[in-house]
Design a protein around this nucleic acid. Sequence first.
DNA 1: CCATCTTTGTGCACGCGTTCACAAAGACAT
DNA 2: ATGTCTTTGTGAACGCGTGCACAAAGATGG
Lengths: 260, 260
Amino acid sequence: MATGRTHRPATRSRGIPEATVARLPLYLRALTALSERSVPTVSSEELAAAAGVNSAKLRKDFSYLGSYGTRGVGYDVEYLVYQISRELGLTQDWPIVMVGIGNLGAALANYGGFASRGFRVAALIDADPSMVGRPVAGMPVQFIDDLEKIVDENGVSIGVIATPAGAAQQVCDRLVAAGVTSILNFAPTVLSVPDGVDVRKVDLSIELQILAFHEQRKAGEEPGAGAEAVLPPVVRDAGAAAAAEGRKGPDGDMPAVMPA
Amino acid sequence: MATGRTHRPATRSRGIPEATVARLPLYLRALTALSERSVPTVSSEELAAAAGVNSAKLRKDFSYLGSYGTRGVGYDVEYLVYQISRELGLTQDWPIVMVGIGNLGAALANYGGFASRGFRVAALIDADPSMVGRPVAGMPVQFIDDLEKIVDENGVSIGVIATPAGAAQQVCDRLVAAGVTSILNFAPTVLSVPDGVDVRKVDLSIELQILAFHEQRKAGEEPGAGAEAVLPPVVRDAGAAAAAEGRKGPDGDMPAVMPA
DNA sequence: CCATCTTTGTGCACGCGTTCACAAAGACAT
DNA sequence: ATGTCTTTGTGAACGCGTGCACAAAGATGG
């Protein structure tokens, strides 16, 4: 799900559901591991286990790509690796630019997973003049003024934004204007982009917050005694009127600071 | 979606849909920004725009939490900030441990978004003795042998794994055995965990691959001439029999290297 | 107190994704 | 060649999430 898009164009591609596309890299990784161990064929059951999904789901996913399996035997590992790679567009070379070489950006630049599988970091870009020229991941950081030139000369269509939140939209606009049509956003902001541009968002703190939600559920299954909750950071009020509506029965400790 | 779980228990929590939970942090961020600008109330339309979602969806999401709005006016910003924070469990203090202080781990430790909103990095842990004692983000790295002690003494229930793929499952097992019940996994591996443990996965290269898929679609809408695809990394064969089944009509360049 | 206007909360329908369950397809042995 | 056994590919049912559209609720003004 490309968070950051206001309306979902569904992008039902060429009949391949978005949910399936999101799982193809998972299958590809599992298949690559099998390939390295020279395993010739694999059943949907085995591969599904390796990828952490349901076997029926896996078969249906593959059915969107075509009939690449052999009944009674399974799937040919090498063949499937190539088919999925091709479907994902990984048989091409994808030059990417990374903007914002702070802690996170530098780590991403060094991250091996980025360079693998057809992705090639074409340039690292930052707005801080003191960063410019400094080598990060064996590559000199370039100044943001050259962004358009870099994108154009390298034929870059994928950009990674790892700037502070405040600069993200501005950087995004420049990338899009320069011709970038896919953006991976690490800044904690909602980017607005024109139609035809894909944005995917990776937000570390959101992931933690979702975990905290489930964690809280596990911890305080019983209502009434809310364990040891820290005082709410907002002003509290004694009025409990708001709780009267009571859609949620088991919710003993509603602080109720209803606005006037 | 907690990738990494084999079967989905759906975790339909207390009636709050998982999709809604995943959006609550988004709303919270937008609301916090409004709060800092001292905006007293906000309509579902405005807030939805700020969070990048549909207004009807936002209202439905909030309806799961209760009736916190005022018709004809909108939502009280401060009140809603507190309600969502409480629902997400962010009014508590969540000590977390981070295992694997390489490039990515160090960047995460320095990442401001982690420390904000109730999350507190209780310890940084690494298996490399040369890292131990070295300060990262103003905090000494501790040796992995003390993992169980650290988790226990700090009451840690959330762990972040930023190790290489090979070490991830092992680290995961130790975390779970020590009492951690929520894991945020940055290693490119499928973790298997017992029931009751939540795993969320952040995979940088997968996100890129999904972008590449859509990018490829945008670039080569026409079939037949596959632009300038690099030669397939697997052995090719002249046999074209496999394509005969032909579920997908418009797919001109099927390489067809069917196994024997 | 009544009328009007704004905005919420939600019933409903629709579409996507998941899962089940099974027929068809092929491998393999005899 | 025939039968058995394994595994795929998929039709169909189900459930969740989304978005529309509107009635109910409350604010505001006269």
